[in-house]
Each structure stands twice: as structure tokens, then as C-alpha cells.
């Protein structure tokens, strides 16, 4: 147990370090871009008529205070960390005066729900089928599944998204093609609303799954067909250990270890993976929010979204890493 807590501590230290560096980078990049959000706002506000220079100066001062852009770079940097510590990213520019954190909190559950469900489903299904295909190499059905997976794998997910959109929205319109739930429906925690959410998520989830399945399938199939010839599997076969036991505890379990690492990595890709899917299906998540924030030059919203995704991705990877020693006892020793 002591070695596990040592491992935990080390991993947690890494997590803090990664988040710190990531947020610093986000700060630097936004501050080094030539686009000055304040000048942009001012020019937008003053483009329809002449405004007195004093009024413009006052406006500039007010905006600076609002966005924490007073003083030199170091002062701004200190102010920035103070805001992050309390989770305040200032008001949004494009949806003034709604605070950025409100916008993010509203969008976050949609993205996390959509992506975690599709990623986990894809992972489970791909590994199960791939593992079986690696073990029962003679099964023609599983071979066909392999061909299918390999065929779909290289298709970009936005293409499958469009194809699904055309098929289920136009040729055979049975599923809703846009939004996260039915527009007219009040939000609430009841069966109707949840059903509507589930129905709306079918197509986005499907578009992500069809493409993601192939990678897990092929990876797991290759892993399993290697592990089948490992000494401990052959020995278990010589020992007459029950087939089902060999398949689950000797082959699948060992093959899953690298796949768990892969899962952590793909959870990390949640935020960039969602952007296009959410755009195509008009899903009210982080991706849609980010795209519109960039279009509107909404400086604080972009910074807030970046920060939140840095923390979320690192936390997901940390969680998987902390669970990993429970799956592989050898990790603790390192």
C-alpha cells in the first residue's frame, strides 16, 4: 500500500505540473496574438459614428478592468491566476454580460456526456470484438467484421457524420438531426427529457463510434493474436485450464493493459474530437461554444474553455493512471 500511495503522490505531482504548464501556455498564446480584443470591441462600437476620444479612453479603461488586462504582462499574469483560483474568467464578450463560467458550465455536460458515452462504448465494443477476432481466428463472421472495421477506420468522422445526416435526416427521416433535445421541451430531470436527449445523441454518437471502432478492433486483435502464443497461455492450455478462463483471465485481461492507456489518450482527445461533430449536429456542447467564441473574437471565453479542457483532460488521464495499478500489479514496483 505504501508503494501505491507513493505512486499516487508522484502521479498527482505530474498532474499539477501539466496543468500549470498548459494554463501558462494558454495565457501566453492569447496574450501574444496580434488581435487585441479591447481594440476590436472599441472599433466595433465606434464604427457607426464618431465618438469623442475621451469617451473612447474611458471605454478602454473600463474594458481593461473587466477583462483583467490592466498593467504590464506580469500584473496581468498575477491577475489571471487570481481569477482562475476562484473560477472566474470574467464576462463573455459575445454574450455580454453572461459570465464565461456560466456558458462553460452550461455546455460542458453535453460534451462530456456525448464523448464519454461514445468513447467508452466504442472502446468496450471494439476490444470485445477485436479480442474475440484475435482468439477465434478462423471465424468467418469475425473476419468479416475485421474487413468492415478496417474499411471504416480511415474515413474522417465528419464524413460519416454527413452521411448519417443525409441518410437519417433526409432519405429516411426517423431521427432528429440537430440539437441536444427537442426545442419546445422544457429542461428538467424527467423521463421525457432524458429520452429526447438520448434520441438526439444517437446520430452524433454513431458517427463517432463507426470510425473509432476500427482502431480498437484492429489493435486488440493484434494484441490478442500475440498473447495467444505467450508461454503462460500455452501453459494454461497444457494444464487443461477451462477455455473460458483462459480467454478472459489469461488473454483478454493481459491484452487490455495497453488498451487502457489508449483509452486515457483518447479521453484526452475528447475536446478536439467534439468540435466538428458538434458543429455538424448543432449540438450545444463545448465544441460549438469554442467555434463561436473564436469567430466572435471572444477572448475570455476562449481562454476559459482552454483552461477547463486542460484541467479536464489531465484529470481524465490522472484517473486512468491511478486505476492502472489495480489492473497491472507490476506498475507499482517501478
Amino acid at each position: 500500500m505504501t508503494s501505491y500511495s507513493g505512486y499516487m503522490l508522484r502521479r498527482f505531482g505530474q498532474f499539477v505540473l501539466v496543468v500549470f504548464i498548459g494554463i501558462n501556455l494558454a495565457f501566453l498564446i492569447t496574450h501574444l496574438t496580434p488581435i487585441d480584443p479591447i481594440e476590436q470591441t472599441i472599433s466595433a462600437a465606434t464604427s457607426f459614428g464618431s465618438t469623442s476620444p475621451e469617451a473612447i479612453a474611458m471605454m478602454r479603461q473600463a474594458l481593461r478592468e473587466l477583462y483583467g488586462l490592466e498593467g504590464g504582462l506580469w500584473q496581468q499574469y498575477a491577475a489571471f491566476w487570481k481569477r482562475i483560483a476562484v473560477g472566474d474568467f470574467g464576462p463573455s464578450l459575445s454574450a455580454f454580460p453572461t459570465p464565461v463560467s456560466d456558458l462553460i458550465w452550461r455546455a460542458l455536460p453535453w460534451t462530456v456526456g456525448l464523448l464519454s458515452v461514445s468513447t467508452l462504448l466504442t472502446w468496450c465494443l471494439g476490444n470485445l470484438l477485436g479480442g474475440l477476432a484475435g482468439y477465434f481466428q478462423k471465424s468467418s463472421m469475425l473476419r468479416f467484421a475485421g474487413v468492415l472495421a478496417m474499411g471504416f477506420h480511415p474515413i474522417p468522422y465528419y464524413i460519416t457524420a454527413f452521411v448519417l445526416l443525409i441518410v437519417f435526416g433526409y432519405l429516411w427521416p426517423v431521427l432528429p438531426i440537430t440539437g441536444g433535445y427537442r426545442m419546445s421541451m422544457p429542461r428538467g430531470f424527467n423521463v421525457d427529457f432524458i429520452l429526447s436527449v438520448a434520441q438526439h445523441s444517437i446520430l452524433p454518437v454513431l458517427s463517432l463510434m463507426i470510425v473509432g471502432l476500427g482502431g480498437w478492433f484492429m489493435g486488440m486483435r493484434a494484441l490478442v493474436s500475440n498473447i495467444v502464443s505467450e508461454d503462460y497461455v500455452q501453459y494454461a492450455e497444457l494444464g487443461g485450464v477451462a477455455r473460458r478462463r483462459i480467454l478472459t483471465s489469461y488473454i483478454m485481461r493481459n491484452a487490455l493493459l495497453p488498451q487502457v492507456t489508449g483509452l486515457a489518450m483518447s479521453l484526452g482527445a475528447i475536446f478536439n474530437g467534439a468540435i466538428i461533430t458538434e458543429q455538424v449536429f448543432g449540438y450545444p456542447g463545448i465544441g460549438t461554444l469554442l467555434v463561436s467564441a473564436v469567430h466572435a473574437g471572444d477572448y475570455s471565453l476562449v481562454l476559459g474553455l482552454t483552461t477547463v479542457s486542460i484541467i479536464a483532460v489531465s484529470a481524465a488521464v490522472l484517473l486512468i493512471d491511478l486505476l492502472y495499478p489495480l489492473l497491472d500489479p507490476r506498475v507499482k514496483v517501478r
Binding site: 503462460y232 483471465s249 489469461y250 485481461r253 493481459n254 497491472d328 500489479p329 507490476r330
Partner: peptide, 12 residues
Amino acid sequence: MQGSMSVLNPLR
């Protein structure tokens, strides 16, 4: 078996 370093399942 030969090489009993690897005949036991490392995860069991």
C-alpha cells in the same frame, strides 16, 4: 515448462 519465468500469468 522451459522458461518458467513466463509460464505464470503476470496478472494473477
